[in-house]
Nucleic acid binder design. Structure first.
Lengths: 254, 254
DNA sequence: GTCGCGTGCTAACATGGGTGATCGCGCCCA
DNA sequence: TGGGCGCGATCACCCATGTTAGCACGCGAC
């Protein structure tokens, strides 16, 4: 149970006081739930009345068309929150499923509201969290719309590695990588067969070493260049702003 | 200057008191700015210190890769707001440009914060606005990732029509349609040539009549079926909930 | 053990969509 | 009045990616 993933994540945006960390740790300690691999956490059509915080494992958002085609919309890694304030909407328009065994904290909206009321700076932090996941969604649109299969998969790997790094889940040039080729295919809009071909290519160029559920990127700058990856959209490393520039903003919408 | 587009938009989610409408109208009256067609409103890298509300015309978010490939990420129609609370981030990771001549209201974040403070229910409404635009972004990912060119363009047309209808900008089965084929291509991840072919096909099947910057969809259910379009993700027609079910939620995060 | 099955991998073939180019029309402006 | 040019329409060609299918390995269930 990695209760500090959220804290590490938010530290990418701003520093936190001990009290603030305390509160976040409390949120992460809310009703925990374990989900088996390839099981659903919440399904399209369900009313969204809880916020999920991923503590352990990988999950994904996905959407299925009537005829069975399925698109993975996002990967949720430890430290990721699902849809703060999604209770405003009446039902989920997509599903969230576990990839590996996953542990989530199920947090009531009131709890988040209370935390924000007590520590207003957390509001900015949670907004940052929301805004970056929107930015990631946009980048995926670019990825699928414009990049070749080779760039597309390379880009996905760069992104996942960077995000894992942000929450301290990498070891040097390596990280755990539980995705199977079918899932990479679902995320990139390619077929599993073509993903396989393309992974061979990436291996052939020495850009990645992938096997046994472990990914190694020996030369990250080279892979980034080959994939047209620019990390700006992840909005990491924002430490600069303490977050108190305007007392108004934390009240603003939300 | 269609100052009421935002109001009509929000009415899809909840009813509004006269005072609330007043406030929204005031926001829409903030410093206006006119942008010529194909001009940029804000560019990647700029610090985002204003919220833009589209009053008139069509705009789009887009992102350009180093080598010039460009993806349109979203269309902004009258009544659309750009990134409430985006001031949390330090710089734009994409650009916003006008398609037609556009009029926007430039709203300071404090003004929005004040409005929300005075009328807390507006917070829920603005969250709804934000959440639906995220849902649209997700649907675009599905669109480009899974649908064929034919379905993809059909889907885009269904979406735009539904959104225009929500703000009262359709006439029967028709609406203004200022996009040129190159822009449709940029939004769908296709080439202009193939967009042209595919539009011919759609016309051939009698699904659309398009010309002279006017779109006519004579049989919407048929086009929706052909495009695997399901409007749920737009989260329109939510009138049901008055918005006062829990006093906590409007405080929550934001 | 061995059966089933999920997964990775490969090959042969099919095709949707990309490329590059040309043409015509309407509109703006010198 | 004529030239430029933005946009839509087509054509011929070709390649990236999809499709279908088959094999092999590893692992859990029995």
């Amino acid at each position: 149970m990695d209760k500090d993933a959220l804290i590490r994540r938010i530290r990418c945006f701003t520093s936190l006081s001990t009290e603030e960390e305390q509160v976040l740790r409390q949120l992460a300690g809310e009703r925990q739930r374990n989900i088996g691999p390839r099981e659903d956490i919440i399904r399209e059509g369900d009313p969204p009345h809880l916020v999920y915080l991923v503590l352990n494992g990988w999950a994904c958002r996905y959407k299925t068309l009537e005829d069975g085609r399925r698109q993975i919309l996002a990967f949720l890694l430890p430290g990721d929150l699902c849809d703060i304030n999604n209770n405003v909407l009446q039902e989920m328009d997509h599903s969230i499923g576990a990839i590996t065994p996953v542990t989530v904290a199920q947090i009531g909206h009131e709890r988040i509201a209370d935390a924000v009321a007590a520590f207003p700076r957390l509001s900015r932090a949670l907004w940052w969290h929301t805004l970056t996941s929107i930015a990631i969604q946009r980048e995926w649109t670019v990825n699928i719309g414009q990049r070749s299969a080779f760039e597309r998969i390379g880009h996905l790997l760069c992104e996942l590695f960077a995000r894992l790094e942000a929450v301290g889940l990498t070891r040097g040039t390596q990280c755990d990588f539980p995705l199977i080729q079918t899932e990479i295919a679902g995320a990139t809009g390619l077929t599993p067969v073509h993903v396989n071909r393309t992974l061979q290519e990436l291996r052939g160029e020495g850009l990645i070493v992938l096997g046994n559920r472990v990914l190694d990127i020996p030369d990250m700058p080279r892979l980034q260049a080959a994939s047209l990856f620019v990390a700006d959209y992840l909005h990491l490393n924002c430490e600069i702003r303490g977050g108190d520039d305007d007392a108004a903003s934390f009240r603003s919408v939300a």
